[in-house]
Amino acid sequence: MVGGILFSAPRDKIRSVGERAILIKRKATEWNTWNVESIAVESQGAEDDILVTDGTSIVLESDMVTGRFLEKVTLGKIKVSPLLADRTMIARPSSPLTILAGEKIQLFISTPVWFYAELLPSNKCLVDLPFWRPSDSWFGSSTIDGQLCYAKYTSAKTNLEELDLHPHRATTAIMVHNRHNKALTINRINVPVNYLNLYSDDKNQLWTSSISIKIEGESADVELIIDKHFLSEFEPQTLISRPRISSEHGKLIRRISHLFG
């Protein structure tokens, strides 16, 4: 079963992380939404929990409305759930990583999650916003061959015990098999989070599907496998949301220049 928070909405509802808040207000024939962002950097408020309250403590001006969604009659149920980004995410380690020839290394990369709210029973999207929006970036071998992504800096941990977990970010475990006879240096890695499931463990920490990447010989193509199983130490309990883009066989073939930089 896909997880999420289901609530009736006779009054205003607000989700907040630190000084960042998303407010939803129901009227008779329309929904109003606000995206309040009083701090701009991810590091501030990063330790705060995601809070759910009514909107009575926040004073908002009418000209601050970021969304007006009209219906003939609004119903009182909304489903809210975290969702992974709508583009792939470029992770930039704080320093280059070199995987020696023949080695297999696991990396842990965290990425910000989106706030997703849909109306029930119609399943119409009402809000689809990041708690913290990464910067836009281009990834590819040239200005023509590539794709528009999001970008963030990360330490790219190699040990589970070193993970710095936050309620508004999800962690992806990436196993890189360097079967080439040369070392592989990673300055950037393109993580296809929009193809991954999102899970929650028994401590309410967010995890994504695991990924395995295999680099074979001189081939320009790389096999990327979205794993269906997890390492035992992860133990995610609940499926929270499904991928924005489905991969029928759980396998993607990518040019190496579209995965590593």
Rank of each mutant, 00 (worst) to 15 (best):
R133M: 11
Q237Y: 00
G67F: 03
T29R: 11
S38E: 15
P167G: 13
G76W: 05
G45A: 08
D164K: 13
V80A: 05
H166K: 15
F115A: 06
I78A: 03
T185S: 04
Y195V: 05
F115H: 10
S257P: 00
I50Y: 13
I186L: 10
L224S: 02
A28S: 15
V73G: 07
A183M: 02
S43G: 00
R242F: 02
W132E: 01
V176P: 04
V52Q: 10
L184N: 01
I78S: 00
T66P: 00
I215R: 09
S246H: 06
G102R: 09
L129Y: 13
L97Y: 04
S246V: 14
A173G: 15
D48Q: 14
K228Y: 11
S200C: 13
K104E: 14
C149M: 05
K104W: 01
I99W: 05
E248M: 00
P130L: 10
R242S: 09
I144H: 10
P112K: 07
V176A: 07
P130R: 02
M175L: 15
V17D: 03
L160F: 14
P130G: 08
T53C: 08
I189K: 03
P134Y: 06
R188M: 07
T56S: 12
E118N: 05
R68I: 15
Q237S: 08
L231T: 04
M175S: 15
K72V: 13
E233K: 07
T66M: 08
S232I: 06
S95L: 09
V73W: 05
K203P: 03
L107C: 08
T208N: 11
I22S: 05
L70C: 07
I14W: 00
D128M: 08
I144D: 11
E161G: 05
Q147F: 01
F7I: 07
A46G: 00
H249F: 11
R20T: 15
L165Y: 06
D136Q: 12
W132G: 02
G140M: 09
V127G: 01
S246L: 09
P112W: 09
I189A: 12
P134N: 07
L120G: 04
D136Y: 11
E161S: 13
S209L: 06
S141M: 08
S247M: 09
E47H: 11
S155Y: 05
F108V: 11
S241N: 12
E235H: 05
V41T: 10
I215P: 01
L23D: 02
E42A: 03
L231P: 03
T74G: 09
A21Y: 12
E47I: 10
T56N: 06
L129F: 08
